[in-house]
Nucleic acid binder design. Structure first.
Lengths: 239, 239
DNA sequence: CACCAAAGTTGATCTGGATCAACCAGCCGG
DNA sequence: CCGGCTGGTTGATCCAGATCAACTTTGGTG
């Protein structure tokens, strides 16, 4: 593989990894100072505009990604265009698990997104000699798997009302986890995205949200919702 | 933790790991002779009758398991009893991923099942000093995750017909992978299990299968189905 | 600031799969 | 050989959510 010997094109952002706001949330949280410098050397910072693609299902998987800002939509398509969103990636989230050499799903930016991009090769090399890092990756993979299993339960056995309530409660928790604790839950994704995440149609999502509003559980505001009755929402999500 | 110094109660099965029929399929396939002996020392062979529980969601996760014979049902329940089967484990499959200290799903035997059971502690110790083994675990976890994502697409966006066809095709592949290549697809699980796996009711599964039979795509036989038109089934599963 | 396109809401109607209700076929124990 | 029990099938009906169709709101743009 050819590797340039000219100055790193990302030189301007030297030290960016140590200054990274989401480092403690991400896989990089397990790295010490020297590991971090090496990580920085092999990674490249990439900016994406809304709706720009990170990668597409079926493509050869050349890179792994680490989201540092914005929200990424992860989805699978059926040949006839039906879409299932399998997840939303937030700052700190890692997109890399792949047992095959091709992406099994597509990913694109919902809003303005920043990611660290690494070639799969360097990433594989990097982890192979850092067992503690592997353990971290493992933890992340199994947490991911647990979320996926939770989502299977939701998709297979919950009603529309329960789906929407679960989504709001879960999304709020994830936002809180990355430090966004405003009482208004930001929803950067479209109604269509929510529908495709919950296995519903856009109309059902819209109707369910307006019903929640009518019932004083929440208020729909620009770019999100404000939860008035979190207890009720949580009860709906659980049952 | 107390560990007996008396002869291993599994002494009768000394060498069973090296003789294990599913070793090449399982995580143990990555172990050399000495690792295998150590693995054998810390693992215990357990037999389960049909419908006996391996573990239950919410319990403290003391053990990890490796299926060596039979089929295991993995599922989650809602408080009101609605059930989602998140997977069927076959010989060679490993049940261990858990980011928390409690099982996030329940598992029980469908038919007669044999498993290797290890305490979580010894297992964690075991892997921590064997990076190559960790890599293997990782591959397995990401394959698992990919399957889960495929299942999300199925649950969220496929019709009943597509669900049943996908299930049959996928199950046939898994059986073939463990060496069961009879033209009759064995279905040890009940219709209710299939329904709970596909997010359908027992009646819909039954009706769909009898329709497939009427349309000469397959024949329903005791304990399974015989695929007459695999091409058609595959087309249904894909589209 | 008027226009247009895209996103979201709302209403009317339809339907795939759920629900409710028999019924049937093994299979086991006496 | 019979009765009952469990798992599976089949039929009739229902309904949650899909589909179809306006309509409204929002946000960008000449």
């Amino acid at each position: 593989m050819i590797r340039t010997i000219s100055p790193n094109p990302n030189r301007a952002s030297f030290g960016r990894c140590s200054a990274c706001a989401v480092r403690s949330l991400s896989i990089c949280g397990a790295l010490d100072q020297s590991d971090l410098m090496e990580f920085e050397r092999i990674s490249r910072h990439v900016q994406l505009s809304p709706n720009e693609a990170l990668f597409t299902a079926g493509q050869i998987a050349r890179s792994v990604h680490n989201v540092t800002a914005g929200v990424v939509r992860l989805y699978k398509l059926l040949p006839d265009g039906r879409r299932q969103i399998i997840g939303f990636a937030l700052p700190g989230d890692f997109l890399g698990a792949a047992p095959s050499d091709r992406y099994s799903y597509s990913a694109d930016a919902i809003d303005s997104v920043s990611v660290c991009r690494l070639s799969r090769e360097s990433f594989t090399q990097f982890i192979e000699q850092r067992p503690h890092f592997l353990i971290r990756i493992n933890e992340i993979a199994s947490r991911e798997l647990m979320l996926a299993q939770e989502q299977m339960l939701l998709l297979g056995r919950r009603t529309a009302e329960e789906k929407v309530a679960s989504f709001l409660v879960g999304w709020r928790e994830r936002l809180a986890h990355i430090g966004d604790v405003r009482q208004t839950i930001a929803l950067p994704m479209s109604r269509q995205d929510i529908a495709d995440y919950l296995g519903l149609t856009i109309e059902t999502v819209s109707r369910t949200l307006t019903r929640f509003e009518r019932e004083k559980m929440l208020i729909i505001v620009a770019g999100g919702v404000r939860l008035l009755d979190p207890t009720r929402a949580a009860a709906m999500a659980a049952a």
